[in-house]
Design a protein around this nucleic acid. Structure first.
Lengths: 107, 107
DNA sequence: GGCATATTTCGCAGAAATGCGAAATAGTCG
DNA sequence: CGACTATTTCGCATTTCTGCGAAATATGCC
């Protein structure tokens, strides 16, 4: 039988969703979908300042969505939760009214 | 080949994630996982005031996560995007470090 | 119509998120 | 060490989100 989720569990999940709830952060996620990128590339793609992008990245990292690795002068970010990308495709399909084949949603 | 998502598309997805980014709203979603509920039941489960819960519901509905139906004096809410619930299970599993079988994530 | 119940809308005060530029930090190269 | 580059942290002004109680709306009942 199912137990009622604790507030802590809900807050932890909410943190992930909150992190994903910003268009620029979803852009970053899309950029990272096919492999790691350094911050400089993401700054260019998002089109706002370094400090802003850096904070977006730290939010995503704190939520467990991304991980980073420093190599030389640069920091590279990559997706830590691949199901997020596939879930997004699922969302898009479902919201367009398509009858979604759920099986395909979390590859 | 993949086209770069437009800002509008990203904003639309972000709206869904933003709606899910609050523990009380996730509680509501959990309550609705096994069927519709009237607002009064949700108010009791969430444990904050009517006006607050009502706004949480309107946020979720605006994002397309829930739908509502009025029957008599009561309004019943239900989940419109079932993949959200399964995605959440996937998240939990992935975040616990489990090697997740993605196939099971969006039933 | 008039009253009771269920829910939403409104207005407000406090909390959190955002974006920015300046300053701090860390790694590399000479 | 000193100059330079890549990135993060800080402080601040602005906007958005939250929760609450009061008032508004809608529905059913007598």
């Amino acid at each position: 039988m199912k137990t009622r989720a604790t507030l802590k569990q809900l807050e932890s999940r909410a943190e992930v969703f909150k992190a994903l709830g910003h268009p620029d952060r979803l852009r970053i996620l899309a950029d990272l979908a096919d492999g790691e990128r350094c911050v400089c590339e993401l700054v260019e793609s998002v089109g706002s300042g370094w400090s802003t992008v850096s904070r977006h990245l730290s939010v995503l990292k704190a939520a467990g969505v991304l991980t980073d690795e420093k190599r030389g002068l640069q920091v590279f970010y990559r997706v830590a939760l691949p199901c997020v990308s596939t879930f997004m495709e699922c969302l898009d399909a479902a919201r367009q009214g398509e009858a979604v084949e759920m099986r395909r949603c979390c590859r």
